[in-house]
Design a protein around this nucleic acid. Structure first.
Lengths: 202, 202
DNA sequence: CGTTAGCCTGGAACGAGTTTCAGTGACTCG
DNA sequence: CGAGTCACTGAAACTCGTTCCAGGCTAACG
């Protein structure tokens, strides 16, 4: 056994880390162009200068790849949001504002958003850990936006989960052209009211 | 032009209607066994005694087929629920009760649920009309459960949309093993609180 | 410096969704 | 009855995700 175990995705050669980044970059680029369908494994492999087999060693399926891409993008968004926190006073409004900001970012790359969100909801059990990571990231973003002074109560966590549900599903309806941007805004604002409802009383 | 136009899905020969039903039945049966992946177009065609090309004439893609299957199942559920309306007094509780009842029905056929829900969220723009039908059915079920005496206000419709979002997304997290049944219950009860919040004041 | 293990490459091969088409059958109109 | 039309059949073909394999490269170890 070598000194370094490899279960964690962190323990990678520099070359390997570079490969991984190239793959994610190619994935995002193709997705930006044509959405989910345009991310073709052969093409991702070619564009990132890697053999098909290698691509599959890094990401065991197209869905894994796209979920990882989403993880990557979310991470960046989290950074950005951290730098410019929401300006509103009320937690509910802050969360709504933050989510709408994120939503506008997605609007700029609708095809990429399509690919990532479709992958996320299409993911089966084999991708659960990765999807869970995305979910935790989203939760973190929302909790940040709430700006709580105390750790969240169970009730508040429930509210946050429901907000996440709404966020994902609203995104889908928008991406599939069944809801307008205004509609999404209303839905988000509506669900954010749950935050007031679950605020500790005293 | 023949007397019967064919744009509506209603205008079908008896033989055609029968074929359609056979196809939907085969689809649901295969889905019940092995979920989304087990619904293989060739097999659906064979099991319903129809050529592959014909299957594709009736349902232009696997997703279309499964969304139609869901439509079918939802319709049945709507009937059932109509016969035994929720017993609770409060609208919010009635809705939660109804959704949990539907949820338990899905638990009995988890694989079928998996196939239908995955198809629903994976559907792209080309399936929008069909997905929309499913959405309207769901809305109808929820509104029924609310048992309003007056037509719903805009605010209430927003709340219903958010409930639907939560319902779909919670279902997905449960199907992919990332949330327990108890978790789903809590989420549904949480989001149903929005109903109280949006009830007309006087 | 040679050896060995592990990763990577190129490419073939397989499976399932989707498309296509020539031929067949049934029904309608003349 | 004959011709035309349209849906259905059977089967081949195409695409793209995924799997597999044989050989080459790298890097640490002896």
């Amino acid at each position: 056994m070598t000194a370094e175990a490899k279960p964690a995705p962190s323990q990678l050669t520099e070359r390997q880390e570079a490969r991984r980044r190239r793959i994610l970059h190619a994935s995002a680029q193709l997705a930006s162009r044509g959405g989910f369908d345009a991310v073709q494994m052969r093409e991702v492999a070619e564009n990132s200068g890697v053999a098909l087999g290698t691509l599959y060693r890094y990401f065991p399926s197209k869905v894994h790849l796209l979920v990882a891409t989403m993880q990557d993008q979310l991470q960046q968004m989290h950074e950005t949001l951290r730098k410019r926190p929401p300006t509103e006073a009320e937690p509910a409004t802050r969360v709504a504002q933050t989510l709408m900001r994120a939503f506008r970012a997605l609007q700029r790359e609708p095809q990429l958003a399509d690919a990532m969100v479709r992958a996320l909801t299409f993911a089966d059990r084999s991708v659960s850990p990765e999807v869970d990571t995305v979910s935790r990231l989203t939760t973190a973003i929302i909790l940040d936006a709430m700006g709580l002074s105390d750790p969240p109560t169970g009730e508040q966590l429930s509210a946050v989960r429901v907000i996440e549900h709404t966020w994902h599903s609203a995104l889908i309806t928008w991406l599939s052209g069944r809801a307008s941007i205004a509609q999404v805004k209303i839905d988000i604002e509506t669900v954010c009211r749950l935050i007031d409802l679950t605020a500790p009383r005293d």
